[in-house]
Design a protein around this nucleic acid. Structure first.
Ligand SMILES: Nc1ncnc2c1ncn2[C@@H]1O[C@H](COP(=O)(O)OP(=O)(O)OP(=O)(O)O)[C@@H](O)[C@H]1O
Length: 794
DNA sequence: AAGTTTCGCGTTTTT
DNA sequence: CGCGAAACTT
């Protein structure tokens, strides 16, 4: 075996790769080769330092990135890479907890019953978690789900958990601040934990928290430290406190850790703060690990000079950053195009034309193109345009395969087979197909189960003991429990998932039920795909593929503890949307900016650069939110290798209404010498428009709207560009765009009574143009423009 | 209990 | 507009 070749690395990259023991931080901008360095460093440890691959744990942000890294390391090392552990924090945690679930502290609920986790725990996804929260809110605490939205309540709980905070912590906060809402959330939180413990279930956040919990057991910690002697973390800027706590258990020197923590990241690319990520962890890394060697990479290898300059200018506007240099030796390249289109259909059409032109004239393949946007809802017009043009595309994100209703329904059966305590799965499975069990019956079963301290399936099995049941319901429950038990026996033989699934689909009458549904064709196709996915999984499992066996496979202590079915279900729960991105497929890719993190494309379109969409309206709530939004723009721009186009539409449909828009304030950060502005479709029209690119550039961007002081409120604006009327469509609910005057999302206004505020959203319902305005003094109000004499502030 | 219809409402971003 | 949950029938 020839020695690992480092000639494709520049000197600082090589310094990082050659680093052996002790903490290291590689802090560097986009496209500077951080991921490449991490890959080489893993290979280098094996190749030059003789580290056993199984002693190396590399953490990536998505499963896809893990697969890629595993492949790249294998390409460098060949068979010597065998046993190297690569995965996301969540996937790693799920595997380790199968082994160490017994160390978890059991939970005592208000009935005094104690619930412990076991290695057959199931993972609750966001949807399961939300259902649990809803039931607690409505059934247990009798709270109004309109005031306490299950989704946001769960988000609050999740955020707390990612910061290793408990229900009691939250309750204490609520007490101190007198925050009634938070106090209720804390009560939900407590019950939520009981519900999960009862079900032997862990949510995404628990995977991290419970991993920390087991790692704090002396024996486990020592074992994990020996096992994972070298830790490597990619995208470290989006690590949350729970994940960091795990790393510290293994590596923090003051606690006897080995200190071999190698992290790479870019504070300017932190885009998951809303989900609990804490970018200060990367900024303070050398405080927590004082012996850390810090390496900076300053050469960008990905993008053209103009694209990189655009990116640097954008991110320069953020105040809370460490600041870094990023240059490139690549050619200047083309201008970054800023393209103004009439509406979202025109925007999509222009993008598709561009793709077709580049394909025709430059011989590019479809996989060279990515269209990025802020919200999943923006994909539709793009999909339609691509479909009309007959261009294959791949949509990443949105409703994921394993989140489809019918797929989750079928999986509920498997989950129940794997873990009889999974009450959420029971509720799903018992309700579909219909078998004469309704709310009433379920309520009676649940009440009895809770009193007895058993799961719903166990209660169903003992239906003859459950009071207040109709005989037919009793029978149906017993039959259901019997069927699950039968399949569980099949599963216990270690039967293939595919076989188990087929049996269940046929025996359980699921195929028949599917055939009778609306959209039966789609649903059947999805379930066929599920069966095919199971068959693939079986093959990988049987060949011992690290993608499914990966962690601990050659760990003697692990002794077959990982059951095939658990592994399959965990994979289904943890599969991310980007995981389905196949860079070799010849298709245009559509995805959110978030999903694009870490990827690169020759040609990138970023669509919908409008105030209210990107940056999103609510980002104005907090300055930090706006900065995160700007980082997201930076991430998007730096995905492009050769060509970048930023598009915006003068009007866009939002929830059935057409709304006028102004270009994103972010666009103002782009210097004139890197951009070219286009207005295809109305060539030759040089009349002034209500927005202007001219004039002094402000240091803090504002919506690019050139407004003057003046009373507005009706449609009298002599200075408004008359061809705004071009935007018109025939629609009953359409309000003439003139009625908006210069009022746009993001604009600052003054109201005679309410004072100053910023426009958050526009509404056209009912024929009256209204604006939702966040006032500095009185909070959010909706005003009818015709009556409110708003003054636009410059 | 199951099926049907209307309402209402909503839109970040995702492991 | 288009989906999912509550309200209303059967
Ligand atoms: N020394 C080098 N010589 C040539 N190309 C390089 C070098 N280092 C990295 N690259 C290339 O530059 C591109 C970006 O590398 P990589 O993805 O590792 O960067 P990154 O810093 O992780 O990016 P980001 O943070 O933006 O996701 C890749 O195409 C990579 O192959």
């Amino acid at each position: 075996m020839t020695r690992l070749d480092l000639s494709s690395l520049n000197p600082p990259q090589r310094q990082a790769v050659e680093h052996f023991a002790g903490p290291m931080l590689v802090l560097a901008g986009a496209g500077s080769g951080k991921t490449r360095v991490l890959t080489y460093r893993a290979a280098f440890l094996v190749d030059r330092h003789g580290v056993a691959p199984s002693n190396i744990l590399a953490v990536t942000f998505t499963n896809k990135a893990a697969d890629e890294m595993r492949e790249r390391i294998a390409a460098l090392l060949g068979v010597r890479a065998h046993g190297l552990q690569v995965g996301t924090f969540h996937a790693i945690a799920a595997r380790l907890l199968r082994r160490y679930a017994g160390y978890l502290q059991p939970v005592r609920d208000d009935k005094g019953q104690v619930h412990a986790w076991s290695s057959t725990f199931q993972i609750y996804d966001a949807d399961d978690a939300e259902r649990v929260v809803r039931r607690i809110l409505v059934d247990d605490l009798r709270l109004d789900p309109k005031r306490f939205v299950p989704r946001s309540v769960h988000a609050t709980i999740s955020f707390a958990k990612n910061h290793l905070r408990t229900a009691a912590d939250l309750a204490r906060d609520a007490d101190l601040s007198g925050d009634h809402y938070l106090l209720q959330v804390a009560r939900v939180f407590e019950r939520y934990e009981w519900a999960l413990a009862r079900a032997n279930a862990l949510d995404f956040d628990d995977l991290l928290i419970k991993l920390v919990e087991v790692a704090r057991h002396e024996g486990v910690r020592v074992r994990l430290r020996e096992r994972f002697r070298f830790l490597l973390v990619d995208e470290f800027q989006d690590t949350n406190p729970a994940q960091y706590a795990f790393l510290r258990e293994l590596a923090a020197p003051e606690r006897g850790g080995h200190g071999n923590l190698f992290v790479v990241g870019d504070d300017d690319q932190s885009i998951y703060r809303w989900r609990g990520a804490d970018p200060s962890l990367i900024l303070r890394f050398d405080e927590d690990f004082p012996t850390a060697v810090v390496v900076k990479l300053e050469q960008n290898y990905r993008s053209t000079g103009r694209i990189l300059r655009a990116a640097n200018e954008i991110i320069r506007h953020n105040t809370t950053r460490r600041g870094k240099t990023l240059w490139t030796a690549n050619p200047e390249g083309e201008s970054v195009r800023i393209v103004e289109l009439a509406d979202e259909a025109a925007e999509a059409a222009w993008i598709v034309e561009e793709i077709e032109r580049a394909r025709r004239e430059e011989g590019r393949s479809l996989r060279d193109f990515a269209v990025l946007y802020r919200t999943n809802a923006q994909s539709r017009p793009l999909e339609e345009a691509l479909r009309r043009a007959g261009l294959p595309y791949r949509l990443i994100g949105g409703v994921r395969f394993y989140e489809r209703r019918e797929v989750k329904d079928v999986l509920a059966y498997l989950r129940l087979v794997a873990n009889p305590k999974d009450d959420e799965a029971f509720r799903r499975a018992i309700g579909w197909p219909a078998r004469g069990i309704g709310d009433k019956t379920l309520e009676a079963v649940a009440r009895w189960a809770e009193r007895e301290g058993v799961g719903l399936l166990e209660a169903a099995r003992r239906a003859s003991d459950v009071p207040d049941l109709r005989p037919s319901a009793r029978q149906a429950l017993a039959n259901f429990a019997g069927a699950i038990a039968k399949w569980a026996a099949v599963a216990a033989q270690g039967e293939r998932i595919e076989t188990l699934l087929r049996e269940l689909l046929t025996d359980g009458g699921l195929w028949d039920a599917l055939r009778l549904e609306d959209d039966a064709e789609d649903r059947l196709r999805n379930i066929d795909a599920l069966v095919a996915g199971a068959a693939d999984f079986d093959r990988l499992w049987e060949s011992g593929d690290p993608r499914v066996r990966g962690l601990l496979v050659d760990d003697e202590e692990d002794g077959g503890a990982l059951r095939r079915l658990d592994a399959f279900l965990a994979q289904a729960a943890l599969l991310a949307s980007v995981d389905s991105y196949d860079p070799t497929a010849d298709a245009v890719v559509l995805m959110t900016l978030h999903a694009a993190k870490g990827l690169e494309f020759d040609v990138v379109f970023i669509a919908g650069l409008e105030e209210g969409i990107f940056p999103l309206g609510r980002a104005y709530d907090e300055p930090e939110d706006l900065e995160e939004e700007r980082r997201l723009f930076y991430v998007g721009v730096t995905r492009a290798r050769h060509r970048l186009a930023l598009t915006w539409a003068r009007r866009r449909r939002r929830g059935g209404e057409w709304l006028p828009s102004v270009p994103s304030g972010f666009l103002q950060a782009l210097p004139d010498d890197v951009v070219e502005r286009l207005r295809p479709g109305d060539a030759g029209d040089r009349r002034p428009r209500p927005w202007s690119w001219a004039g002094p550039r402000r240091s803090v961007e504002r919506p690019a709207l050139d407004v003057r002081r003046g009373a507005i409120g009706s449609a009298r604006f002599g200075w408004m560009d008359p061809d705004e009327a071009d935007c018109e469509v025939a629609s009953a609910s359409f309000v003439d765009t003139d009625a908006w005057g210069p009022i746009r999302v993001g604009v600052e206004v003054e109201h005679p009574q309410f004072g100053r505020g910023r426009v958050r959203a526009l509404r056209a319902r009912g024929g009256d143009a209204r604006a939702v305005i966040e006032f500095e003094d009185v909070g959010e109000k909706t005003v009818v423009l015709r009556y409110a004499n708003l003054v636009v502030l410059e």
